[in-house]
Nucleic acid binder design. Structure first.
Lengths: 142, 142
DNA sequence: TCTCTTATTGACAATGATTTTCATTAGCAA
DNA sequence: TTGCTAATGAAAATCATTGTCAATAAGAGA
């Protein structure tokens, strides 16, 4: 018995043809923050700065930016999606489970290994995720 | 600015002191299935076999089994949690995004690398996740 | 600059997984 | 068997995310 991953049937847009201030403001927030932000957080930050942006618009924006590979998505342990502007190189994350600080880690051999193992099993169109969650030095003190 | 990972404040139990047939039936289902199952799936399978188990009980059971390290959790791309009985050795997954087939992959050096990199950054109490999602040979044909 | 077309927006409802509540049931120690 | 209380199940509550749809605004062409 297999489950079926929910794939399509989304009415979320995957491209934009016009530029709007709402979209720009979301990108601005993402630029200002180093770590990951949830759509809810982006929305409330914008609301707190006086914006009247709607929650749906934030979701539409991050979804679109994700499908055009302009932002990274990461799933938190509770399933909430977190977004961040892509940096140029593919990398992985070391995340503190208490304060949420993230550090980027590079590991070229992981990339090569993921490709090899996938090919060996006949898989194509690969995506891989490596997340290391722990308690950072600061938070371990408390 | 950091986000705060939602952690405690859950009223889900983390241990059980009595054994019940409901709990056993959930474990039975997990034993019968090789791949991952969501709590919803476990519940509907049980219902279809005549059980009167409640959805809450399924959730309580998998949550508890997870915190006692008896089951693995994996987050699907849409955020839904999938559960499976732990096999003895720590391992990772190669998942088909279409049909959901999963293959276990062993990679001892990944374990060592995760430990090293965490120590180097002062992180403790580490957990790591490696997921490779792709399209399997069968599904690529269609 | 001014229309006009229609992509985008935002308020609100709907969805769906997960958690909580709480009265009832059932393990299990004595 | 009895009594205590952990565990259950039905239903309501939560909460992130998506859908709906009337109103707004981007931007191409006049």
């Amino acid at each position: 018995m297999h489950y079926q991953i929910k794939l399509v049937s989304s009415k979320m847009p995957n491209t934009f043809t016009r530029t709007t201030k709402q979209r720009n403001s979301v990108v601005e927030i993402l630029k200002k923050h180093e770590g990951f932000l949830s759509a809810q957080e982006i929305h409330s930050i914008l609301k707190n700065t006086g914006s009247t942006i709607g929650l749906s618009t934030v979701y539409r924006t991050v979804t679109t930016l994700t499908s055009s590979n302009e932002v990274d998505v990461m799933l938190r342990e509770d399933g909430e999606a977190l977004y961040r502007l892509c940096s140029s190189a593919h990398h992985h994350h070391l995340v503190c489970r208490i304060c949420g600080t993230t550090k980027e880690i590079q590991a070229d051999f992981v990339e090569a290994w993921a490709d090899d193992i996938s090919n060996a099993h006949g898989f194509s169109d690969i995506n891989h995720t490596v997340e290391i969650v722990g308690t950072c030095k600061e938070c371990a003190k408390h």
